[in-house]
């Protein structure tokens, strides 16, 4: 587990799990569950390529790219929040966490606008197989994002109050947020780009 050259304290500092190791159970289990959803989508997509492509043409790739960049930036921000909190720069860490939450809300607003656009154009959960998967994956991801906003709220509350500050909780929460981010990265590739 540790390198033989470095003294034990150094090595322990160099190699440790960020946050509660327990959170990684959620990360790994959730990625497996999502992989199974993706697998089901790809399985049916490969069988009905023409029908999927025809419906997929109604998606705006640019919007997907903006969504992705917004979430990637929020992830970057929460990663900086962890580093600032670790260095004791709490006001900066609180600011980073607030930026993360704001970008999360922006992502959600963009998604709601996108859903509204599709629904008014007649593309709903039941209008076709592609849109069924589209709405399912984006909504279930949005549920995770909503939980993520609660989680970032916990970070802000922890960092704002000197008596509550707990680096481990901050790192655990950040790990959750990054999971929401990388799940979207996969959803984006599968829904907007896959042919």
């Amino acid at each position: 587990m540790t390198t033989t050259q470095a003294p034990p304290t150094e090595a322990a500092k160099a190699r440790r799990v960020p946050g509660q190791p327990d959170m990684w159970v959620l990360v790994l289990v959730e990625s497996l569950i999502f992989t199974s959803y993706f697998g089901v989508y790809l399985f049916y997509r490969a069988q009905h390529e023409a029908a999927f492509l025809q419906e997929q043409a109604h998606l705006d790739l640019w919007l997907g790219i903006v969504d992705t960049i917004v979430l990637l930036t929020s992830s970057w921000s929460v990663a900086r929040c962890v580093q600032n909190a670790r260095a004791g720069r709490y006001p900066a860490a609180v600011r980073d966490a607030c930026v993360t939450a704001a970008l999360g809300l922006l992502f959600l607003a963009l998604k709601i606008a996108e859903w509204a656009g599709h629904i008014t154009a007649g593309h709903t959960l039941t209008s076709g197989e592609f849109f069924t998967h589209y709405f399912f994956l984006t909504v279930i991801h949005a549920v995770h994002l909503l939980i993520g906003l609660v989680v970032v709220g916990i970070v802000v509350r922890q960092l704002a109050d000197p008596r509550r500050r707990d680096q481990q909780v901050v790192e655990t929460c950040a790990t959750y947020w990054h999971t929401v981010d990388f799940l979207w990265v996969l959803i984006f590739a599968l829904l907007y780009v896959a042919r």
Binding site: M1, A14, R16, V17
Partner: peptide
């Protein structure tokens, strides 16, 4: 971002 780079080899 998730700092797995600094995590134990197992992770």
């Amino acid at each position: 971002f998730m700092e797995v780079r600094h995590a134990p080899r197992l992770l």
